[in-house]
């Protein structure tokens, strides 16, 4: 186990620097004159140019600029937006809302996916199974840009079941519709993986043993089979996080939730480079760390992984 953890950590460090380097390079490389770009049409005085060059280390090489960017990033100093707001403060204000939204979405998706997946697997080939599979296909085909505005129109405005926007007070109820929309982006894959792995496990020897011991079918399915079937589902969490992040970008924009995605979408719209790069860099780090944790968790749950 120890060797596995060390190997994963080393890989993660490499991936981390590689990914941030790619983001940095594409964002800041081959800019003609960043100072002039900042000033727009106005002429820039020599002293201002010297001060800005000094402040942003523009006279130094590409690699040392990357070094400054990384050390600022890792010490939590993300700089200021084009309008002069502190990016770290903006992020600190925004993330609890995004966290609440995504946690609601994750729980919703997991409960639905596991229940329906197990059901579907038990009645494999039946009408219920086919219905559920057709439904997941439909969900997979619904891009979030379609689902979010249409759900807002139908359930928020026409039927009035949920508030159409959630800008003022963030509560469980106002976040319900956005969370459902966000959950649909990940529920289909989770459900299909649960179904496949339950189907496989239902044929396993230990299931026959459990049945032979006289355990009730319900206990066999929901305790013995489910526990083993959830292992592949857990690896999905890491992948899902990326989907959830991009989902939150659109969902928060549509439903006016002032979270990370909402701020990022605003930054994109206003062409606020520092804000976009700062937010994306942090999200990349979160993504990598969560994926590392998921990998380690996976190895802890399934001892076979370590010996590969």
């Amino acid at each position: 186990m120890f060797r596995y953890i060390v190997r994963r950590l080393l890989q993660m460090i490499l991936t981390f620097f590689g990914a941030t380097f790619v983001v940095f390079a594409l964002m800041f490389a081959n800019q003609d004159d960043p100072i002039q770009a900042l000033a727009g049409e106005k002429p820039v005085s020599a002293s201002l140019r010297a001060a800005l060059t000094e402040r942003y280390h523009l006279d130094e090489g590409f690699l040392s600029q990357y070094w400054y960017y990384m050390s600022n990033l890792l010490t939590g100093d993300l700089g200021v937006t084009l309008t002069g707001r502190d990016i770290s403060a903006l992020l600190a204000e925004a993330w609890p809302r995004t966290l609440q939204l995504s946690l609601m979405a994750i729980v919703l998706a997991a409960v639905l996916a596991v229940t329906a997946g197990v059901w579907s697997a038990i009645r494999r080939g039946g009408a219920l199974d086919n219905g559920i599979l057709a439904f997941t296909l439909l969900l997979l085909a619904m891009p979030i840009v379609v689902l979010a505005p249409v759900a807002q129109l139908v359930f928020g405005m026409e039927l009035g079941w949920f508030p159409a926007t959630a800008s003022r007070e963030i509560s469980f109820y106002t976040l319900m519709l956005p969370a459902i929309v966000l959950a649909t982006t990940v529920v289909a894959t989770q459900l299909r993986v649960t179904r496949t792995s339950v189907v496989e496990n239902l044929r396993a020897d230990y299931v026959r043993t459990a049945r032979a011991k006289g355990l009730t079918p319900r206990r066999v399915t929901w305790v013995h089979v489910l526990r083993n079937s959830l292992i592949p589902v857990i690896t999905l969490i890491g992948v899902d996080l990326g989907t959830l992040m991009s989902g939150a970008l659109v969902t928060e924009e549509v439903f006016n939730i002032p979270g990370v995605g909402f701020n990022l979408a605003r930054g994109i719209r206003n062409e606020d480079g520092p804000l976009v790069v700062g937010f994306v860099s942090i999200l990349v780090i979160v993504f990598l760390v969560v994926n590392l944790i998921v990998d380690l968790l996976y190895a802890a749950l399934d001892p076979r992984i370590r010996y590969e």
Partner: peptide
């Protein structure tokens, strides 16, 4: 490792940064 590095960037977030650039 090259694949891992590109995979370390969430798809849409990367796309947002690159497309603008």
């Amino acid at each position: 490792r090259g694949i891992d590095i590109v995979l370390g960037i969430p798809f849409l977030l990367g796309a947002v940064v690159f497309s603008g650039r």
